[in-house]
């Protein structure tokens, strides 16, 4: 993320005006158990992934005061397809780029995430890895487990969202307004093995998702 004060101001205005108008006014978020959201970093918001709007919606949940600390984690290959797109997601959205599958080559793909947590930042992360089937929770990747166990003191907040997959699903560029419901869960900590953590997180997210029966979407 840029240190340039002008770009930081641009980022602030983008989130304070454009994103909030879009997410909170045009779409509308209903947040269940808002009090469980972290008051400050370091923390990880781990949510299900249905739409390109997911990260923006999660970032709108947090007060603007924390915006400089908010960092969505995103895949390099998807977002760095052009120079302009790369600049935008790096400087305005403020993502931490992760190289998918680079763990197999022996490196630590989540090093940047760990460093961000050490700086007290708040990560927005989608453990499913990609958007998958709209409005369903796919299997979780192991990365979140490694990250949680590497920083066991950091609270990981499971979150389940309904509705954004209808508003802007994968493969669509037309936004249709739908309300979105966000269920915030109790924080989890990576105290055991990474596999246990991934299982626990998956169960917590499933449980949050089951709190509400979304209307049929067939």
């Amino acid at each position: 993320m840029s240190r340039n004060p002008f770009i930081r101001l641009l980022r602030f205005l983008f989130f304070a005006v454009v994103v909030r108008a879009l997410i909170l006014v045009a779409l509308g978020l209903t947040v269940r158990n808002r009090e469980r959201l972290p008051k400050d970093g370091p923390a990880v918001l781990a949510a299900n992934h249905n739409s390109n709007l997911d990260a923006l919606a999660l970032m709108s949940l947090m007060p603007l005061r924390l915006l400089p600390k908010l960092r969505p984690v995103a895949a390099v290959d998807y977002f760095f397809t052009s120079k302009a797109k790369g600049w935008f997601v790096t400087n305005i959205i403020g993502i931490i780029p992760v190289k998918r599958g680079s763990g197999k080559e022996g490196g630590n793909p989540l090093l940047a995430c760990e460093e961000a947590l050490d700086r007290g930042e708040i990560l927005v992360l989608f453990p499913e890895g990609s958007r998958g089937h709209p409005e369903t929770l796919g299997p979780l990747k192991k990365g979140i487990g490694h990250l949680a166990c590497a920083r066991p003191k950091v609270s990981i907040i499971p979150i389940y969202m309904h509705g954004l997959g209808k508003a802007l699903p994968k493969g669509s560029t037309v936004l249709v307004p739908f309300n979105c419901t966000v269920h915030v869960g109790e924080p989890l900590y990576g105290t055991g093995t990474y596999n246990d953590f991934v299982t626990a997180l998956g169960e917590a997210m499933m449980k949050l998702g089951a709190q509400e029966k979304p209307p049929a979407w067939e």
């Binding site: 209808k166 739908f178 209307p215 067939e218």
Partner: peptide, 12 residues
């Protein structure tokens, strides 16, 4: 209307 459409079953 948005609330209504978000509540009812809809077709993709």
């Amino acid at each position: 209307l948005k609330e209504y459409l978000s509540l009812i079953p809809t077709r993709r």
